[in-house]
């Protein structure tokens, strides 16, 4: 079964009396274990698409199914629960709660899910170790580098084993080398833990790393290619 199914999705924004067609009839299916990138120039609708898939925004028309549930029919409260349990989010920057340490930021998701004290700490620590931040666990976000902050965001996104991790330009705010390392990490998690990733980018270096490349221009998917990768 598809984890995500987008059927004929449109999204219109009204601003200053003008209608902006950010999405114009998008069809998309994603399977478990995919490592897919939405690529397109700035303003092409990548963020809008991810927001509609992630239940952060309603599409104007069409349907979005997450593991078979039509999320366009959910109330804001139900959407909030769906985001909490089914979706991991990684944003471009400033992902973390500034007053919580790396560990607490990761624990936070588990707290929201209602997990008890001892399991929570252990699990959060495990995931932080997995993303290579064993020694930085007790630091506050501002005591971490941009790359480390994104690693914490990745840890937080995967800690509750969501159906899919959505990442909106996760490497846009870090340098090339750090971005590449972050991609290594996500790819590793995808391969080892079977975590499904869908991220957006306009960076050719990042596009090259995707196993599936979905090109979007002007709110329409113009090309959708599976990339055969020889070795990691």
């Amino acid at each position: 079964m598809e984890i995500i199914q987008v059927v004929n999705c449109t999204k219109d924004y009204h601003s200053d009396g003008q209608i902006v067609h950010a999405l114009r009839g998008v069809h998309l299916s994603l399977h478990k274990g995919e490592f897919a990138a939405i690529a397109g120039p700035s303003g092409s609708g990548k963020t809008t698409l991810l927001n509609c898939i992630g239940g952060l925004d309603y599409s104007t028309q069409g349907n979005v199914y997450i593991e078979g549930t039509d999320i366009s029919k959910l109330s804001p409260k139900e959407l909030s629960r769906l985001r909490l349990f089914k979706i991991g989010f990684i944003f471009q920057a400033y992902n973390l709660i500034p007053v919580l340490t790396a560990l607490e930021n990761v624990e936070y998701i588990l707290l929201l899910q209602g997990m008890g004290d001892s399991n929570r700490k252990r699990k959060a620590a495990e995931v932080l170790e997995l993303v290579g931040l064993k020694d930085e666990m007790h630091r506050l976000p501002h005591e971490l580098s941009g790359g480390q902050q994104q690693r914490v965001a990745i840890a937080r996104a995967i800690v509750s084993s969501p159906a899919i991790v959505l990442a909106d330009e996760p490497t846009a705010n870090v340098d090339q080398k750090t971005g590449s390392a972050l991609l290594d990490l996500m790819e590793h998690l995808n391969k080892e833990k079977q975590i499904t990733f869908l991220f957006s980018t306009h960076d050719p270096m990042v596009m090259k790393r995707a196993h599936r490349l979905i090109n979007i221009i002007d709110g329409m998917i113009v090309k959708d290619t599976l990339v055969k990768r020889k070795n990691k």
Binding site: G54, L56, S80, R81, R83, L84, F85, F89, F91, Y94, N95, L96, I97, P98, Y108, I109, L112, R156
Partner: peptide
């Protein structure tokens, strides 16, 4: 504003 938005995005009531 953004921080609160992020907290709500990830499922904070």
């Amino acid at each position: 504003y953004r921080e609160i938005g992020i907290m709500k995005s990830i499922g904070t009531q």
